[in-house]
Amino acid sequence: MTQGQVQLVVSNTETIPGMTIVQSLGLATGSTVRAKHIGKDILAGFKNIIGGELKAYTELLSEARNEALNRMLADASARGANGVVNVRFATSSVAGGAAELFAYGTAVVVQ
């Protein structure tokens, strides 16, 4: 994964496979809050009659999660890290129809 000029290695394991961690730089976090789109909401409401995947929401949340992840990477590279380990995702629904997507991990220097 790339963020700006710096190449960051991202992993959700405690170490990066095939590399050694030299230094830990603390927690890197990124979050975003997205609300449902009214037009997509109506389409999703129709889709809800027969059930199944709500593609509009899948796309919406994918976009939002990418943004949260990119913010986390920006945070990590601002600390001078070249890797993020033990990345976790969390989602919570805020007020009606809005969701907060949150990504966090430990910023590290790897060799």
Binding site: S11, P17, G18, I49, I50, E53, T58, V87, F89
Partner: peptide, 18 residues
């Protein structure tokens, strides 16, 4: 031996029918 690695994710939003 591991050559390289990367974080990957995929998601699905599902709704049950009426």
């Amino acid at each position: 031996k591991i050559l390289n690695s990367s974080l990957m994710w995929e998601s699905v939003v599902i709704g049950p029918s009426w």
